[in-house]
Simulated assay, not measured.
Amino acid sequence: MLNMELEHLRLACDLMREHDGREPEDVLAPELPAPVTFEPNKQYLRDLIADELDLTTLGTGYVREAHERFASMQEALNGEQPPPSDRVMTMHQEAFGREHRLETEGKHPVKSLREKS
């Protein structure tokens, strides 16, 4: 992937010279930033889900309950049916007899979403 991206950069630089008459060094950073490191983030995501799963916006603030505007938007999108994502989860549960999520880090942080025994 890196080689592909570097080739894209090289081609873009050639096009800049050809069509803009400028050198890429005029607009590019003098050096690359430090590479991004990937680290485990499961606990961060679990905490985020536990704290903010049911938040939605109301004006410029956040509320926990699904307010009328959100409910009417859901009804306009889905009619009387549950959202497609909920339907897929139900189909999975019916087909395989279990929750679609793996609980590799322990029980789901939201009690109402934990797998039913």
Rank of each mutant, 00 (worst) to 15 (best):
A95C: 11
E80D: 11
P30E: 02
S72P: 00
T57P: 11
Y44H: 12
T104F: 06
Y44D: 11
G97A: 01
G21S: 06
T56H: 12
E65I: 03
H92A: 14
F38A: 12
V110M: 11
H8K: 14
F70D: 01
E80M: 11
T90L: 13
L58E: 15
A95K: 13
L9K: 08
D51T: 09
L45I: 04
V27S: 09
L113M: 15
L58A: 13
M89I: 09
E5A: 15
L58D: 15
M89L: 13
L32A: 08
M4V: 12
D54A: 06
T56Q: 13
L77S: 05
D26G: 05
R22L: 14
A66N: 06
E7Y: 11
A95W: 03
M4C: 07
R64M: 01
A12G: 08
P24Q: 08
R64E: 10
R64G: 15
S112N: 09
E94K: 15
M73L: 11
R17M: 12
A76L: 14
D51V: 00
M91Q: 14
F70G: 06
T57Q: 13
M73K: 04
V36L: 10
L58H: 15
V27W: 10
E99R: 08
E39N: 11
L53V: 05
P30A: 04
S112F: 07
L102E: 10
R17I: 03
R17G: 12
M4F: 13
M73G: 04
R22V: 07
I49L: 09
D47G: 10
P33A: 02
M89Y: 06
E52S: 09
D47C: 05
D20M: 11
R10F: 01
